[in-house]
């Protein structure tokens, strides 16, 4: 499988896929997409990169252990669910606000952070399974 073309193209393909996955994640609330799908796309990006160029570069690129990424995602989702409790409304109630960025009004919500958490959990868990399977045994 490790053809020269694949090896050369894989990093660019993976980067594009990850970029696309973030796009899918962010548009999810109004258009088809969301954290789960985004996470799956990003996980496949890492899997492809790993198949083409070996696991070690992927791990280096991710910097954190994929499981830590997943755990951080779960923590993030939990916190964004809990925020509403401190605001005096039931657990998991969406809170909305908006900020101005470069003159654009951007709506920010606890829901968005929840979705990002979902994304991270899916990326982390699936990528860590895929990478573990891709690793070669060393005698």
């Amino acid at each position: 499988m490790r053809t020269l073309i694949f090896k050369t193209a894989a990093p660019y393909l993976a980067s594009l896929m990850i970029l696309f996955s973030i796009f899918v994640l962010l548009r999810g609330h109004n258009e088809p997409g969301g954290g789960f799908i985004g996470g799956l796309i990003a996980a496949s990006a890492f899997a492809i990169y790993g198949i083409a160029n070996g696991v070690a570069p992927v791990r280096r690129a991710m910097h954190f252990h994929p499981m830590s990424v997943a755990a951080a995602g779960l923590l993030m989702s939990t916190i964004s669910g809990l925020v509403s409790v401190f605001a005096g409304v039931p657990f998991m109630t969406g809170l909305w606000g908006s900020i101005y960025f470069l003159g654009e009004k951007i709506k920010i919500s606890s829901i968005l952070f929840f979705d990002i958490g979902v994304y991270l959990v899916v990326v982390g868990a699936i990528a860590s399974i895929a990478l573990a399977l891709e690793e070669r045994e060393r005698e």
Binding site: G28, H29, N30, E31, P32, G33, G34, G35, F36, G94, W96, K107, S109, I111, F114, D115, V118
Partner: peptide, 11 residues
Amino acid sequence: NGTNVVNVILV
């Protein structure tokens, strides 16, 4: 505040 019903249900 979301038009994608599937995702709104999910999150």
